[in-house]
């Protein structure tokens, strides 16, 4: 049965986050909380990250994941949640950006 009505456990970021925590790992979760213009992933999309920088899921089409992972490792260390904002690539405030021209806000928090 393709298009299962049940969760795709092997690829579901929240299921992976839960199993990482069960394994005793420190885990952060990044969530798209707002989008403007053409954004590659909808509000509510998740990226989960462990302290070594391993990750699953996505918050963009691959454009900003690297930066989110770096920030998430810091969040795991400090325990303090952060709100990140990404705009177009030439926006001087950020080194990375969205080539599609959209803007997204990503909330990063440590789990547990």
């Amino acid at each position: 049965m393709d298009e299962s009505i049940y969760l795709d456990e092997a690829r579901d970021p929240l299921i992976i986050a839960e199993s990482w925590m069960k394994d005793g790992k420190d885990v952060a979760i990044a969530t798209v909380v707002e989008t403007w213009g053409s954004a590659p992933r909808p509000v509510g999309s998740h990226l989960v990250i462990d302290a070594e920088g391993n990750f699953h899921g996505s918050v963009s089409g691959g454009c900003v994941e690297g930066a989110v992972v770096t920030e998430a490792v810091d969040v795991i260390g400090s325990g303090k949640a952060r709100m990140l904002e990404f705009g177009v690539a030439d926006d001087t405030a950020w080194q990375v950006g969205l080539s599609c021209g959209g803007r997204i806000k990503v909330y990063v928090e440590r789990l547990g």
Partner: peptide
């Protein structure tokens, strides 16, 4: 996270 996943697994 565990509670949320339980709900999602149970299709609630």
């Amino acid at each position: 996270m565990k509670t949320l996943n339980e709900e999602r697994r149970a299709r609630r």
